[in-house]
Amino acid sequence: MNASDLTPADLLRSALAADPARPLVTFYDDATGERVELSVATFANWVAKTANLLQGDLAAGPGDRLALLLPAHWQSAVWLLACSSAGVTAAPGGDPASADLVVSGPDTLEEARACRGERVALALRPLGGRFPQPPAGFADYAVEVPSQGDRFAPYAPVDPAAPALVAGGLELSGAELVERARSDAAGLGLTAGSRLLSGLGYDSWEGLSAGLFAPLAVGGSVVLCRNTDQLGAEGLRKRVESERVTHTVR
């Protein structure tokens, strides 16, 4: 990626300019059998639509904190990059009561109700499907996001020195996040074209880095796996082979 990239959103823009067709995030849920593969271009389109939802409909911007109550999932990765694009601080597993808005999966809705700001719910169903019945007090992401614009421009430039991520006891600016992701990538031996399989959750920096930021920082890609305990050793070996995985973190 470019040395001038100072935020995760910059990294995504560079990836899009370099090779929009290559896979960026491949997601597996071994409890349901779901597999989703997103190219750089498709992922960037989801990010743009989500950032437009954030900035436009939810009126979120620099200085706001978003509690992200989602597991490791391709849609979680989209929200992380959308927050970076709009200058919103993402707090995976953060306290909804102290957040300006909250994004929740189906298993954390009651906890998310503590947020007094805007609330968005994700069903986390295959292919980004909606809730059969929208949860009371929440906007259904799958209903709201399709109509959003395919291009995003922040109302004001995002400051790389502003808080971008709060996770695992760390508070990182956009520039610090990018620097740390590059350092992690070097430590893992990742380079352009590397394909990392991660079975870690998004509740720690290690999981966020391996499951998104480190591969993105060097022009690699991630195979993000949920519920790998149901896969077994032989199943994992076959996945590594079929997905052309070069590095594994579990």
Rank of each mutant, 00 (worst) to 15 (best):
A3K: 02
S4D: 04
L6W: 00
L6E: 02
P8K: 06
A9V: 00
A9G: 00
R13A: 14
R13F: 00
S14F: 09
L16C: 04
P20G: 04
R22H: 03
R22S: 05
D29Y: 06
D30L: 11
T32C: 00
G33W: 03
G33E: 04
E34W: 03
E37V: 11
E37S: 12
L38G: 06
L38M: 13
A41Q: 15
F43K: 11
W46T: 00
W46N: 13
W46V: 06
V47C: 03
A48V: 11
T50D: 09
L53P: 06
Q55G: 14
D57R: 15
A59E: 08
P62F: 03
L66V: 11
L68T: 02
L69W: 04
L70N: 05
S76I: 00
V78L: 07
W79G: 01
L80E: 10
L81K: 08
S84C: 05
S84G: 10
G93F: 12
S98Q: 13
A99M: 01
D100F: 03
D100G: 15
T108W: 01
L109C: 04
R113S: 07
C115R: 06
A121C: 07
P126Q: 10
G129V: 10
G137K: 09
F138T: 13
V145L: 12
V145N: 03
P146K: 13
S147D: 09
Q148I: 04
R151H: 07
R151G: 03
F152S: 07
F152G: 07
P154E: 15
D159I: 08
P163R: 10
P163S: 07
A164H: 12
L165E: 11
V166H: 06
A167M: 09
A167I: 15
G168T: 11
G168A: 13
G169Y: 11
L170Q: 14
E176T: 05
E179Y: 00
R180C: 00
D184N: 13
D184F: 10
A185V: 02
L190P: 03
L190I: 02
T191G: 13
A192Y: 01
S194E: 11
L197C: 06
L197R: 12
L197M: 15
L200V: 08
G201T: 11
G201I: 09
W205M: 05
W205N: 12
E206C: 04
G207R: 07
G211E: 13
F213S: 10
F213H: 14
P215A: 11
L216V: 11
A217N: 02
V218M: 12
G219R: 12
L224I: 11
L224W: 05
D229Q: 12
L231I: 02
G232I: 04
G232S: 09
E234D: 14
R239N: 05
R239A: 10
V240Q: 15
V240M: 15
S242L: 10
E243C: 07
R244N: 14
V245N: 05
T248V: 15
V249L: 13
R250N: 12
